[in-house]
Design a protein around this nucleic acid. Structure first.
Lengths: 162, 162
DNA sequence: TTAATTTATGTAGTCAACTACGTAATAATA
DNA sequence: TATTATTACGTAGTTGACTACATAAATTAA
């Protein structure tokens, strides 16, 4: 077994380790789609599923619902449109807006993709289903949204000065 | 309170949410150093502390100890050297190797930085110290290192086909 | 009705990890 | 000893999120 200096550092290295884990998962996911010969990317499930549920949403609506910055959504939608999975419909009166919808191709392929995603969930469950990781994640996100990491640290710094 | 579609998706969106959290923390950390007027970056603590402990390490040794790919270490070391925090000493006999060490400037500044990092740990502890998050992280990393996310999913897929 | 503000989208560039590949030096083997 | 394999490091390019800024349309206010 290799040494892991980050692990030794405990709480200090949480952020770095989360990034390390996340990168590994993302990379692994990418490879999985390639091996399965599927022409989609790992994070597209979000768009597929939200449009499966809502049928027609604007860029901003999607961004709000998934709590991403809107340029991230623009980028995903652009790629998926190029691959023929999405279509854009201009708003009837508001010329700024466009509505994003699943294409027929997307609707056809969706059941197949859903099976893959379900298998991913099973794998994840087998790995961490017995823990309360999901609840912890919710808690951390709530707290970070309330008071960011920066302010929490600055508060601690000020407290120590007294 | 805003809707959060990712949260509704449960286990399926774990990776995406981890990235979302991680990005937020990194960005927040960056801003913190700026506000404090410190000329260092959020992830440099790893290099500072490992060289505080070991004094003289090669690029590859650092990469192994923190379990990063070596080009990541090269990039960090390069930046820190430019800022005057690190020096490189060529190996006496092996012309491929260079040893990385803390500069005098780094040694002078280190106590100040350590206070900041300690405050960060306090903040993190106040936030998630009551949980077993650290243990969970260890468990997840161990399992991912053992069998990656991809293979876990492919196994589940095959299992369902029978 | 004109001006100011807000909203929706798009573009450009950043960030911190990664892989893939290249090269030179060293070590191991035939 | 000559060849081959390994090791150390470096460079180039990718990834998927982000911020900051730009622009045009719609709404609100003066």
């Amino acid at each position: 077994m290799e040494e892991d200096f980050l692990r030794e550092l405990g709480m200090l290295s949480i952020t770095t380790r989360l990034k390390r884990i996340t990168d590994k998962m993302l990379h692994d996911g990418k490879k999985m789609y390639q091996e399965l010969g599927l022409d989609i990317e790992p994070n597209w499930y979000v768009i597929f599923l939200i449009l499966d549920e809502h049928e027609s949403l604007s860029i901003t609506e999607i961004a709000n619902k998934i709590q991403f910055a809107h340029p991230s959504v623009v980028a995903m939608v652009e790629k998926m449109t190029k691959k023929g999975f999405l279509i854009s419909v201009p708003h009837e009166t508001d010329n700024r807006k466009r509505y994003i919808q699943l294409s027929e191709k997307a609707k056809t392929k969706l059941p197949t993709y859903k099976k893959i995603w379900a298998a991913g969930v099973s794998g994840m469950n087998a790995m961490i289903g017995h823990t309360n990781f999901l609840n912890l994640l919710n808690e951390i996100e709530d707290k970070l949204n309330d008071t960011g990491f920066k302010n929490r640290t600055l508060n601690e710094l000020n407290a120590n000065e007294n």
